[in-house]
Nucleic acid binder design. Structure first.
Lengths: 107, 107
DNA sequence: ACTTGAAATAACCATATGGTTATAATAGCA
DNA sequence: TGCTATTATAACCATATGGTTATTTCAAGT
C-alpha cells in the first residue's frame, strides 16, 4: 500500500459515522437499509459513506436479491495497522536537501 | 482512547503532508523551519499542520531557544494501531435496535 | 531598548466534505 | 408488463479543510 492509498484509507476511517460502520461490520455484515435507522441519517448519506469505504477497499460488496450486503475487508484494516507500524523511511530526504543546500540546521 | 479521540487522531494522519511529517519525525525530531523547505509550503501552513498533530497528541513540542522542536509521540501512534485492532463491539447496538423495533431484517 | 529570527495567529479564499431532497437504476414479484 | 423495495446518483447547501499573506508573539543578541 503506497502513501496515497494509505492516506485515502485513513480519510475513509477518519469520520465518526464511517468508523462506527466499520465497527459494526466487524461484528457482522450489513445491508444499507439496516444501517440507516442506526445512524439516523438518510439512505443516500449511508450510501455515500459505503461508496467511500469501498473506494478505500475497506469493505466488500455483494448483492443478495435487492439488497447489497457490505462486509468488512479485515485484511485491508490490517494493512493500515501494518503501514502505520512501518512508516516510510525519509532519512534520505534530509540527504537530498543537504545536497540542494536546503537543509536548515537550527542549533 | 475513545472513539472521538481516535477519529481526531485519524483525521490528523489522513493528510499527505502530515503523514509525511509523521514519517520524518519517526526518523528524527525537527523544528518548523526545517520542514518548510521540505514541503514547499509556507511557514504558517506547516505551523497549522503541527498544531493539528499536537492537538491529536501525535507530536510533542519542546522549545530550544527560538526554535520549537517537534518529536513524534510514538506511544500515541501505537495507541491508534491498537485501537484499529480492537474496534468497539457493537453487538448490543443490534439488540437495542431490535427492542425499539428498528432492526431491519433483510432476508 | 532595539533589532533579528522563529513560530503562532488572524483574516481570507478555493476546494473538499457530509448532509439534504429528488430522481434514476436495479432486482423481485403479482 | 407493471408495481414495489432497495440502492445509487444528481444537484444542491453549509461547514470544514488546507493553503495564502499580513501581523503578532516570543526568545536571543547587540
Amino acid at each position: 500500500m503506497d502513501t496515497k492509498q494509505l492516506v485515502n484509507t485513513l480519510k475513509a476511517l477518519a469520520d465518526p459515522t464511517r468508523l462506527k460502520i466499520v465497527s459494526l461490520l466487524n461484528h457482522r455484515s450489513c445491508c444499507v437499509c439496516e444501517l440507516v435507522p442506526i445512524f439516523g441519517i438518510s439512505q443516500p448519506a449511508v450510501s455515500k459513506h459505503m461508496s467511500k469505504l469501498k473506494s478505500a477497499d475497506l469493505v466488500l460488496e455483494s448483492r443478495r436479491g435487492q439488497w447489497v450486503i457490505y462486509s468488512l475487508n479485515h485484511e485491508r484494516l490490517e494493512q493500515v495497522r501494518f503501514a502505520l507500524g512501518s512508516l516510510p523511511d525519509y532519512s534520505d530526504e534530509f540527504e537530498r536537501l543537504a545536497e540542494q543546500g536546503l537543509l536548515v540546521t537550527c542549533e
